[in-house]
Structure formats: C-alpha cells, structure tokens
Design a protein around this nucleic acid. Structure first.
Length: 876
RNA sequence: GCGGGCGUGGCGGAAUGGUAGACGCGAGGGUCUCAAACACCCUUACCGCAAGGUGUGUCGGUUCGAGUCCGACCGCCCGCACCA
C-alpha cells in the first residue's frame, strides 16, 4: 500500500458507489425504512463549512442506518427562490433564473467530492415549474378548504424607491438602498390560517419526544398560550360608535393598579381620530415611521399621545383613566388595546413616569411599607406579598394563582370573561417580489378574486423581465398580468404577488418521497417513506420553518396530500451548531478596521505566546520566524489582532472554503474534522491545526493498515484476547456514540482504539480482524479511506454495504472492578474487588484498607455507603 | 424590549447525582538525524520539594456525595414572524 493520497482514492470510490447505485432509495417491503434529511440549502453558489458539517452529520446517520440494514432515503435539493437572486440581478444584471441554476450547478459540483450517500436521482429545485406548479395546486386546494384568506396587513414601505422592503432590508429604520426613512403601510395580503391550529400545534409538541427540549420550548413560547381577562371599558368623550373599548389583559390581578389605557396606532379608534384630528394624524404618522419587525417596535422609544378620551374603571365608575395612543401596543395581539399598570409592569412604569401618570401599587413585598417606587415591582416566585389595593377575594397569592383568582372574581362581578389567547399570528404569505412561486389567482372586476383553473397550472414566471427599477417586475410586465377570468371569461388581471419562500420549504420533505409525481405527493410513496425519521439543521430554524412545516403537513392532510400519520412530519430533530473561525484584524491609517482572510495570515508560537502576522510581510524564502523577522513585522504593522471565534461571514473575511480543504487534505479530513472535537449541537471552531491533526490521524491509520498488511500470515502474538476485548468495546462505544449523535465521542473512541491497535501484539488474523472493524467503524465519517483499508485487508465487497459489526456482550464486562473510596466525599483510596462481591464484604475490605485506616485515624465511622460497581463513601 | 441557550485546563471538549479534565490540539522533555522536517516515546488543571491543599462564571441551598438538581446574580451567544 502506497502513501495516503486522498486525491487518488476519493474519486475512485465515489465512482464505485455510483456504478453500484448503492445510494438509490428503493421501496423495499423486506426492510424497515429510514428517512434522513438535512435542511436543504439555499443555492448561494458556494458551499461553506456549515454545509459540510450539516451534510456530514446526515451522511453519518444515513450510512450507519444503511449498514444496520435499513432501506435509507437520503435526498438533496435546493431552496431556490428568494431575494438574493433578485439582488444579484439588480447589481450585476442577468436573470435570477440563470443566476440560480448556475449556482445550483456550482454547488452540486462542490458537494459531490464530499462523497455523501445522497440519492441524486431525487434532486429538485423549488424554482422548477414542476415543483412550484404542484405547490400552486395545493394552494388552490387549501384556499377551497378555508385554510387561506385575504386581509390587510402592514409592510415596510420605502417612500423613495416606492417599494416594499423585507425586514432585513431595513437598516436602522431606513431603506437599505435609498436610505429613506421607512414607513409602515397597509396592503391586502394572503394569509394561512395557522392560528386555527394554535392549540393543536402547542399540544402536539408533547409528543415530539425526539426533538430538543429547547426547540419545543421556543415553539411553545412562540405560540404563546395565555389565560387572561377580556373586558370592556366604558368610554367618555369618544366618537360615536366607540362607547366601549375592549381590552385583553394577562394581569387582571393588577386591575386596581390601573393608571391609563392605551390603544395601538392601528386601532380602529386611532384610525377614526386620525381623520379628524391633525395632532393625532401627525402622531400616528410618527408611530408608523420605522420598520414592522417586533425588534424595531419593542426597542424603539416608547411614545404616547393623550387622546383626551377617558374610560371608566370597571370597578369604580367615578374613576377615570386617560386613553393614550401608544406605539408599543400591537394591533395583532389581543384586542389592540391595553390597560396600563405601572406599579407592576416595567414598560408601563416607564410610560407612566414619562407622562407623569399615577403609579398606585396593588401589592407590596410582605413586611414592607408602601413607598414611592423607583421601578415596577414584580415579585419573585418564592416571594410573599401583601395586598394594599386588592379587591375582594384577593389574598396574598402571586403569579398564575392570583391571575386565575382575579378572573373568577371579575366574572362574578360581571366584568368581562376569562379567555385563552394565543400570540401566534396568521402566516402572511404574500411577497411583492418576482423570484417566488406565483400565487395562482386572478382579480376580475365582476367576479372578484377567482382561483386559477387547475388545468392552467403551473402559472409560470415570465422570463422577459427587467430589474433596472425597484419593485416587482411582474407589476409592470406588459402581457403577463393580463389574462381572462376563468369564471366569466372577461379581461382580468393576475395576482402579481408571489409566495413567501417558507411555503416552498414547508413541504419539500414530502415531495422527496416522489419527486417527479404529477400530483404533489404519491400516496404509496408518502405512506412508505414518511415521516422523516431524522431531520438535521440549524437552530436558526427552530421556530419559523419548523412551525410552518408542522402546520403545512396538517394542511396537506386536510387537503388529501398526506396521510394522517404524517401530520407531524419530523420524528426526530437535531439542531447542529455553527462552524466558527477567528477573525484577523488590523487597522488602516484612519483607524478603521481591516479584515484578513485566514489563508493570508500566518502564525507561530513561542512558549505560551502566539504571534499572528500577515504572510505578505514575509520576504521571499522566509519560512521560519526569527526575532529579527518578528521585529520587522511589528515595525511594518504586519502583526494581526485576533478576535476569537465568530460566525463565518464574508464581511469579516473569516470564511474557510471547504474546496481549499478538500484540495489540500481530501474530503475525509474535512469530514473527520467537523465531526470531531465539538459536540454537534454546539459551535465548532475551524482551526488549521485541527485540520492538520485530522489529516495526520488518517495518515497514521493508513500506515498502520500497511504495517498489518505486511505482517507474515503466521505471525503469533500474546494479545489476541485483549485485542478482541478492545475491539468489542470500540464497536459498542462507537455504535452508541452515533446513535446518540455524540459523534465527537465516537471519534475519541476511534482515536483510542487506533492507539490500542497500533500497540497491540496479536496474531495476524486478530490484527486483520481488528483493522477491518476499525475501517467499518470509521466508514460513516470517512468512507473513502475506510473502503481502501477494507479492500486492502480482504474485506468482501464494498465496506459501505457491509453489515454493521456487533459487539459480543460477554467481551464487554470485566471480572474485577476498581472502586474509589471517599471519606466525607473526598477521594482517599481505591480497592479492586470481584465485580459480584456482596456489599457487606466490600465494606469490610474498604475499612481495612491501609490508606483508609490512616485517614480515619481511629475516628468512629458514622455511616458507609456502597454503590455497587461505582464508589464507596465513608462518613465520619 | 421579549423569548431561548451556553459558561469545565493555554485551547476544543469528556464525565447514568458517584475517581473532574477521556480524546484531540498546543506546549515542554526525549529517541532518531550531521542538522532539520517527519515519525515515535514521556510529561502536561493550579499551588507545593513533598505530605497535602485548591479547583467546573459568582453567591446561596438540597444531598453521604453536586460540573450535573434548586434559587438569585454576572457574562457571552442566538431568534423575534418579509433573510434563508
């Protein structure tokens, strides 16, 4: 066996796998199925280390499950609609379609060398008319089923470019291109009725046992179930038709701490006042300045305007509260109107302080005196309070108990009723952009909104569009907009909004089960392959993508596109961390930061000190750094400041291109590195020393394989039994590691096993068996080198298709165990005992141990605790 | 602002409530070499010659025993509905 040269073996094995068709997913009734899916990529044009990590994880699982005898589905596709393609068209000319498909070709070309076990025959892009046509068909089904409706909603409006902006296009309240102050504007848009499923989506989270707890928690909080009181204030001085003001509160227990009422600038009352009062109009316009994102609204300055209207406190008709219009009150939540209790809510407190409103406390900390507050008083869980302004029925309760008691009391008094409310809003799917799935409806002057006829699907995006002007090119397309009404045949206009790209990604997992079917799904294929057994992707999708997919699967079931068993489409979810890298920074003459690419930076280490410098500062032929060179680099400002590990981003220039790594070390090294060291759910820092180490280790295994291959066939050794035990232990630990996504631990085991094997003195057959097993255990992570070793050591067929090794349980247990002995919780000694020794005898042995006797120094033993096989603790 | 997560050697990290630091990196020492690179071997939490002591962000609690469980605090990171 020659030297380890990945560039020689990797393409060879990839061809061998393709020729044998080993990754083609087939419905096989004789085998259990396993569907593993990584979140499909956006085709930006370049794969990055995050992709390598994500797909390697999925690949390890897919290869492992295939070796365990499952019929595996492991597909790949492209989330291909979205803004970057339009931005590229605007910046560089060209067409979003060409840009996207070229990027797909480029990325496919970069992914193939990774040697992933993907069934490429199922590949599709969401911008393929074959895909989005089926999506349009489902849109029509869902529209007919009452799952989709239209209503007015806010968008970010750029008044200079006259275009709608995405939240990410709003920077510090201004349009990213025009720099104009962004306004909120109302448009009629399409919505999915996801809120109909609030309760179900929340309750079903309990059944998702193999999802990370934190994702379920985040979704639960997002859905935001709350129990509160809805009641009506009687208004005083309000315009006609507004004699009641409905309010929802989750804190009815603080009702007697009310100080003011506030309505959203989008509340019907505010809109009414706006038309008649210039001061209100000016204020509301001020509120509508700035973006629509929750972050922009919540972190902006809290502003209010006294409308002059008052409301009567429901418990005391002589008590009047002023009504404000306030920019932090959201129309989408509750009733768009609140009552403010500054004593027990920090935001209300700040508002009341700003506008000099009273701050009456409802309760105070037990044992304290009522005093002026400097901040809102919100008791901790364990804290006890005394009510100073409570109403009948209120005791010293706090928290949920107090809220529920208050609801009961209010209902008894005829003040409102308890209601369950959800924070989850309906999903707005309209986008005023070109590069998305056209919404298949037609606007007819006589018939109104009419669904496109199914036989006319797909409604294709027109190719002849330009991006020289801001806004949606579909709006100004000469002929595409014009059409005839499917109902009355009169001239009509197409909807020019396209769908949110989250729609595309909400059902692609189902499409993979029959990617070229002429219906959205095929019943037999969906029944066989669904659900996704293991879904893998970034935590950034923990809420929106996953929640939308869960909703969409239900909507697909309701419209007959998925079986009832698939309404929770992802059985298990794994969220992996990011790949990070250091940032290298210098400053220019003006003191502005300048960032440098990792490959332009060198480093050397003297003792604990690390020096990082620009390679450009070296002179020709300089490979080592002497003190003279160091001094020169320092003087020439070629030393670099290192900013610790951060998300890879182009602007910070800390991106490591996987293609460079593959060229230098091979795909196996890249795969091995991203799976080792860090646990997969956590961030992993890419380091060049780590990549070197991964390559060195694979080379060591290669050399070891050669050595074993050259051993004489009749070589005898003493260590067969020990090697057999070590092999069984490695099989057991690697198997468990992969099953629990503890890939870093599986790899640590493989390091240990390699060390054991290289030091072993065993017979040739035992050594060969051990290294073949090592190759198998490594193969999910580094399949190419594993194939080479497997073949070289006489393994039958492809290592990829060999059944996963099993550990003989009798080889896993030892006859004697070493038990640590603690005295008062501190480790003082240890003894070796047979593994089945009775507790009483272990106690006797422990107390007789000479170290124990020395430490006890004659003191009486109060208690002795023996945890069999674990530990002994002597208490004195 | 709201919601979520994470804090363990010089670094990445390991540890069903039971010997804290597996494994890897880095560093130090050695073998080989004319020398270097490679490779291999040893050492490596901190203080201490040692005996021993101290250590998992901080403070407190539960327990025979806490990195792990509970409470409060501090720091960092992520998401916030039109980015994908």
């Amino acid at each position: 066996m020659s030297r380890y040269e990945p560039s020689q073996i990797e393409p060879k094995w990839q061809t061998a796998w393709d020729d044998a068709g080993v990754f083609l997913a087939r419905r096989d009734p004789a085998k259990p199925k396993y569907y593993v899916l990584e979140m499909f990529p956006y085709p930006s044009g370049r794969i990055h280390m995050g992709h390598v990590r994500n797909y390697t994880m999925g690949d390890v699982v897919a290869r492992f499950m295939a070796a365990k005898g499952y019929s595996v589905l492991h597909p790949m596709g492209w989330d291909a609609f979205g803004m970057p393609a339009e931005n590229a068209a605007m910046e560089r000319g060209g067409h979003p379609k060409d840009w996207t498909y070229q990027n797909i070709a480029d990325m496919r070309g970069q992914m193939k060398p990774l040697g992933l076990s993907i069934d490429w025959s199922r590949e599709f892009a969401t911008c393929d008319p074959e895909y989005y046509g089926q999506q349009q068909s489902m849109f029509l089904d869902m529209l007919a089923a009452g799952l989709i409706y239209r209503k007015a909603a806010m968008v970010n409006w750029d008044p200079v470019d006259m275009t709608v902006l995405a939240n990410e296009q709003v920077i510090d309240g201004r349009g990213w291109r025009s720099g104009a102050l962004v306004e909120r504007r109302e448009l009629t848009q399409w919505f999915f009725k996801i809120s109909d499923y609030s309760a179900e989506l929340l309750e079903a989270l309990d059944g998702l046992k193999d999802w990370p707890e934190k994702v379920r928690l985040m979704q639960a909080n997002w859905i935001g179930k709350s129990r509160g009181l809805q009641f009506a204030f009687t208004t005083h001085g309000a315009p006609e038709g507004f004699d009641r003001l409905d309010v929802y509160t989750t804190r009815p227990d603080t009702l007697l701490g009310a100080s003011f009422a506030a309505i959203s600038p989008d509340h019907p009352l505010a809109k009414h006042l706006e038309r008649h009062d210039p001061a209100v109009a000016a204020f509301v316009a001020e509120c509508r300045r700035g973006g629509t994102s929750a972050e922009a609204i919540e972190t902006g300055e809290k502003l209010g305007l006294d409308t002059g209207i008052t409301v009567l406190h429901p418990f005391d008709n002589d008590w009047q509260l002023p009504v404000y219009i306030a920019n932090f009150v959201l129309m989408d939540y509750g009733t768009g109107a609140i009552f403010g209790c500054p004593a027990h809510d920090q935001r209300d407190f700040e508002f009341a302080t700003k506008y000099s409103l009273p701050i009456p406390p409802v309760f105070i900390a037990e044992g304290t005196e009522e005093a002026a507050l400097t901040e809102a008083y919100v008791p901790m869980k364990s804290e006890r309070v005394t009510y100073v302004r409570g109403f009948a029925g209120q005791t010293d309760q706090t928290g949920e108990a107090a809220v529920l008691a208050a609801i009961t009391e209010c209902e008894a008094r005829g003040v409102g009723r308890g209601v369950t409310n959800y924070r989850l809003r309906d999903w707005g799917l309209s986008r005023q952009r070109y590069w998305g799935c056209p919404i298949p409806v037609i606007h007819c002057d006589t018939c109104g909104v009419v669904p496109e006829a199914k036989e006319n699907l797909p409604v294709r995006l027109p190719d002849d569009v330009t991006f020289d002007k801001p806004g949606n090119p579909l709006d100004r397309h000469p002929t595409w907009r014009d059409c005839t009404c499917p109902k009355c045949g009169a001239a009509a206009k197409r909807e020019t909004d396209t769908m949110d790209t989250f729609v595309d990604s909400s059902w692609y997992y189902a499409r993979f089960t029959s990617p070229h079917s002429d219906t959205p799904t095929n019943a037999e294929d969906a029944a066989y392959w669904m659900n996704v057994d293991q879904y893998i992707g970034g935590i950034e999708h923990a809420i929106l993508h996953l929640l939308y997919s869960r909703f969409f699967a239900r909507a697909m079931h309701k419209t007959g596109h998925l079986p009832a068993s698939a309404i929770e489409p992802f059985n298990a979810l794994f969220t992996q961390g990011m790949v990070t890298h250091e940032i290298y920074k210098t400053t220019d003459a003006q003191g502005r930061p300048v960032y440098h690419l990792p490959e332009h930076v060198g480093e050397f280490i003297i003792g604990p000190a690390r020096f990082v410098f620009l390679k450009a500062g070296l002179e020709e032929g300089e490979t080592t750094i002497s003190s003279g060179v160091l001094a020169r680099l320092k003087a020439a400002n070629q030393m670099v400041e290192v900013i610790p590990s951060a998300k890879m981003s182009k602007s910070k220039k800390n991106v490591v291109d996987p293609m460079n790594i593959i060229a230098q070390f091979g795909a196996d090294t890249a795969r091995w590195f991203v799976m080792s060291d860090s646990p997969p759910e956590r961030d992993v820092e890419w380091t060049s020393s780590g990549a070197d180490a991964a390559f060195k280790h694979l080379s060591r295994v290669w050399t070891l394989c050669s050595r074993i291959g050259e051993m004489p066939a009749d070589h005898k050794g003493e260590g067969d039994d020990a090697l057999l035990r070590a092999t069984a232990k490695a099989v057991d630990e690697v198997t468990k590691g992969i099953e629990t996504f503890a890939f870093n631990k599986a790899i640590a085991t493989l390091y240990g096993f390699t060390n054991t094997l290289s030091k072993a003195n065993a017979s040739t057959p035992a050594m060969k068996h051990a290294i073949r097993t090592l190759a198998q255990l490594m193969s999910p992570m580094v399949p190419h080198i594993a194939e080479s070793i497997w073949t070289y050591q006489g393994g039958a067929g492809l290592c990829t298709q060999a059944p996963w090794p099993k550990a003989d349980p009798t080889l896993l247990t030892l006859d004697t165990v070493t038990l640590p002995i603690q005295i008062n919780g501190k480790r003082r000694a240890e003894i070796s005992v047979p593994k089945d020794m009775p507790v009483a005898e272990v106690e006797k042995l422990a107390l007789a141990d000479e170290d124990v006797v020395r430490f006890l120094a004659g003191q009486p033993v109060k208690k002795i605790i023996v945890v069999p096989g674990r530990i002994i603790n002597v208490v004195i």
